[in-house]
Design a protein around this nucleic acid. Sequence first.
DNA 1: TTCTCATATGAAATTTGTTTCATATTTCAT
DNA 2: ATGAAATATGAAACAAATTTCATATGAGAA
Lengths: 107, 107
Amino acid sequence: MKQISYENFFTNFSNKTRLGIITALMDGPLSVSEIVEKLGEEQSNVSHNLEHLRKCSILNVKKEGKKRIYSLNKETVEPMLELVEKHVYGCGGSCEECGLCNLKEER
Amino acid sequence: MKQISYENFFTNFSNKTRLGIITALMDGPLSVSEIVEKLGEEQSNVSHNLEHLRKCSILNVKKEGKKRIYSLNKETVEPMLELVEKHVYGCGGSCEECGLCNLKEER
DNA sequence: TTCTCATATGAAATTTGTTTCATATTTCAT
DNA sequence: ATGAAATATGAAACAAATTTCATATGAGAA
C-alpha cells in the first residue's frame, strides 16, 4: 500500500489565517503589509504563515524595493477550492461538522 | 471579501491517520476492524478519525451485521489527490518543507 | 552613516488537534 | 437472557501547530 504523505501540503488549507491569506490574494498580488491590513492579523503571524505557504509553492514571492509581493499559485489553488465547493454542494447538507454546509447558507 | 472557511474540510487531509484511512480505502470499502488492522492504529483512534471523515462526507458508512463498512467518496477525494500530485510534479522540487518532493523520490 | 519602513525570525506562550484509556452501546450467536 | 465481537464515545493525557512578543535584518531615504 502506497502511503501518501500529503499532510503538510493540506495543512496550508486547514487554518484560518492561511485561508485568509489565500482568499486575500485571489484578487491579485499583495505586499505583506497589505495582507496584514486586510486580515487584521499581526505582522509576524502573517509572515510566519506566508513562509509555510511559500515553501509549499502555494504562493510565490518577488522583491520590490523593501517590499515583498506575494502572489497566489492559482493553477493549484483555484481548482482545489472549486473541488471543495462542488463537494459541498453535492453533500446534501450532511456535513454538520465541517461547517461547509453552513457556509452554503452564508452565500 | 468572501471569507472561505474550509479549514475543517482540509483538516481531513492533513494528518497521517486520516490519510492512512483514505489510502486504505482506495482499493475498496473496509470494516473498522480491517482498517485498524491495516493501519496498526488503535481501534478507538481509528474510530474517532473515521467520525471526522464521515462528518465531512469524505467517507460513507453502511451497517452490515455488527460491522460498519466504510467507503471512500472517490468523486471528491481522487481528483483532490490528483491535483496535489500535479502540483508536486510541477513545483520543480522547490517545496522543501511539505515533503511532497521527497515523496517524488519514493515512487 | 543613520533613520525609518517593511519584513523576517526565534523562542515562549497559547491554542488546537490527536491519541489513549476506560467504558458504553449495538448486534448477533448460544 | 447471557456472552462475545465490533464499534463508538467521553474525558484525560499528550502532541503539535499557531500566535505573540521581542528583536533582528535588509533596503531605501535623508
